[in-house]
């Protein structure tokens, strides 16, 4: 008899315990759910704020004028963003054009050719580079790259330049993008199963053929993600660009002329945006463009990723 009652007690204990665990489980799940909902709402909220704040400029200036007029004189009520959009496309495009191939080659070297010691020595450095605040890059570019472009590179092309120009900004950005792409690509190349390499090598492919036709393809999804992140950084980079791009909202006639980018424009103009009518709204619209473009590129990235994953799965 005594034994049984003891057992019953124990059973109740377990039941009580189970309830406690279930409640903990429930709270945990709900908490994560709520946090996720808040974060996702933020996304919508930012979009709504930017959009609603941009409405005044839509009411006063036509969208075609906003996007395709090359006159940017907020004091005179002229809000043509074309020069700034052009500047952004140039700076982002050139920086990625330089950064992507170089980073890929470097990642291939580190992951496939470098000695194990070199690799384990280099990787933390690259990760640190990826985390250095952008103002540091801006400062270095201002102190070293700007004079270099002014005194050596631009004169080579027969152009007089202050050094504060599209070219300098592009180079600065590409340097900032390197570590991100390299780091992610090395990570992904290293995660390719060694048996896949063996499969290629065993039919007599050389190492380079294996890298080009097997490793790069098999890691294409990660490479695309890396390039997208690099794009995000280059496209949205504000302070480092602001320090070296020149900040003049005119369509540059050469790469050695100053320009302006969308992100950098907001940074340099927000101090005076309250004093000029519609200026605030125009800057909100610029922010909206940044937001939407990043969104579009990410969506395109997702579509591309799906296709590539289906095609080059291993």
């Amino acid at each position: 008899m005594k034994d049984q009652s003891y057992d019953n007690n124990k059973l109740i204990d377990i039941k009580y315990d189970m309830n406690k665990r279930r409640i903990r489980d429930f709270i945990g799940i709900k908490l994560m759910q709520i946090i996720t909902i808040i974060v996702s709402t933020l996304f919508v909220l930012i979009f709504l704020i930017l959009f609603s704040k941009s409405i005044p400029i839509f009411e006063n200036v036509s969208l075609t004028d906003l996007l395709f007029s090359s006159l940017w004189n907020p004091e005179k009520g002229e809000f043509g963003l074309l020069p700034i959009i052009t500047g952004t496309i140039f700076v982002t495009g050139i920086s990625l054009f330089i950064a992507v191939p170089i980073s890929l080659l470097s990642a291939v070297y580190i992951s496939e050719y470098a000695h194990k010691k070199t690799r384990s020595f280099l990787r933390p450095f690259i990760d640190v580079l990826a985390g250095v605040p952008s103002v540091v890059y801006g400062l270095c570019a201002f102190l070293f790259l700007v004079p270099l472009v002014k005194d050596f590179i631009a004169p080579r092309f027969g152009i007089e330049s202050t050094g504060l120009c599209i070219f300098t900004a592009s180079i600065t950005l590409s340097v900032m993008v390197f570590p991100i792409i390299i780091s992610l690509c090395v990570e992904s190349f290293r995660s390719i199963p060694i048996e896949l390499k063996e499969a290629s090598l065993s039919v007599g492919a050389t190492k380079w053929e294996t890298i080009r036709k097997v490793i790069l393809r098999a890691s294409a999804p990660s490479v695309i993600t890396a390039v997208l992140l690099g794009f995000g950084r280059a496209f949205g980079e504000t302070i480092a660009v602001n320090m070296v791009v020149g900040g003049i909202p005119k369509i540059p006639s050469t790469l050695f002329h100053p320009g302006q980018t969308l992100a950098s424009l907001i940074a340099s103009a927000y101090g005076e945006m309250m004093s000029i009518p519609l200026y605030e709204s125009a800057l909100m619209f610029v922010a909206l463009i940044l937001f939407v473009v990043v969104l579009i590129f990410n969506l395109l990235g997702i579509i591309l990723l799906r296709k590539v994953k289906r095609r080059w799965n291993y």
Binding site: E195, E198, A199, V214, R217
Partner: peptide, 8 residues
């Protein structure tokens, strides 16, 4: 190999 590894 132990597990087939078709190329991508």
């Amino acid at each position: 190999s132990q597990k087939p590894y078709p190329l991508p």
